[in-house]
């Protein structure tokens, strides 16, 4: 049973289809990169997987005991958050909200989970700092820690390297690798950084409104769209 399986999923905005006939599946421990040009329907697909957008056709099935509210999500940062007065701890802890149900406060195990994930992301010493005072890379770590609080199985990342300098980007990819290998959390990442995608991911989904390729990274490198997109750089 796969963690998540998409069958012939199509997504549309106001009747205009942006992504069509997408079929793929992700198993426990996979690292899937969704690549493609800008406007090829990658972010829309992510919205569909998260349940933020209803597919206009096809089905998305969860398996392996995964439910829709157990997916960790690293969104693109919004302008609204730039000057948000919240401490790092408050932001990370809000990732545990899906475990609370109707309980109006966090219990000890949720607070411990927040602390543990901050430690893992190396931001424990920032815990009482204000979110708006952090650098771009630090913010990504905070949001990643929050996403880890929300999941034990699957993490979705939407262009995590946007606005980060090359060194910080490398650190971020390393972190992701660790999460994937040591915690066996499956990762689905949207990226247009094709070079680091093929060097980290186990599977590639290449989108151009419809899927051009889905399979393992090794096979992608030999496939027609892979060769074309990489332009013989690898």
């Amino acid at each position: 049973m796969s963690l998540m399986r998409c069958e012939n999923v199509s997504l549309a905005y106001e009747g205009k289809t942006v992504a069509a006939n997408i079929t793929f599946s992700i198993e426990q421990g996979d690292y899937l990169c969704i690549v493609g040009e800008n406007g090829s329907g990658k972010s829309t697909l992510i919205k569909g997987l998260l349940g933020l957008k209803q597919p206009s056709a096809g089905t998305i099935v969860f398996g392996d005991g995964l439910t829709g509210d157990q997916i960790g999500y690293l969104p693109q940062q919004t302008v609204q958050q730039q000057d948000f007065p919240a401490s790092v701890y408050e932001v990370v802890l809000s990732g545990c909200l899906n475990r609370c149900g109707l309980r109006p406060f966090y219990n000890r195990s949720e607070k411990a989970a927040a602390r543990k994930n901050m430690e893992r992301m190396g931001i424990l010493d920032l815990s009482s700092r204000c979110y708006r005072e952090l650098s771009g890379g630090q913010r990504q770590r905070v949001l990643l820690a929050r996403a880890l609080c929300a999941t034990k199985k699957l993490l979705l990342l939407d262009e995590p390297a946007t606005g980060l300098d090359p060194l910080v980007t490398l650190e971020l990819y390393d972190l992701m690798q660790t999460i994937n290998h040591e915690d066996h959390i499956a990762i689905i990442m949207v990226s247009h950084d094709i070079k680091s995608a093929v060097s980290h991911a186990s599977h590639i989904l290449h989108l151009d409104h419809t899927p051009l390729f889905f399979g393992t990274t090794e096979r992608y490198l030999e496939s027609e769209p892979g060769k074309l997109f990489l332009g013989g750089q690898v």
């Binding site: 998260l50 349940g51 933020l52 509210d69 157990q70 999500y73 408050e90 909200l97 109006p104 979705l156």
Partner: peptide, 23 residues
């Protein structure tokens, strides 16, 4: 306000994340 304080915080800080994780 007091009963839903944490939920209101999550929805205010990042509505999409809150939605995606089941709030």
């Amino acid at each position: 306000y007091l009963c839903f304080y944490h939920k209101l915080f999550a929805v205010t800080f990042d509505e999409n994340f809150a939605k995606a994780t089941g709030t």
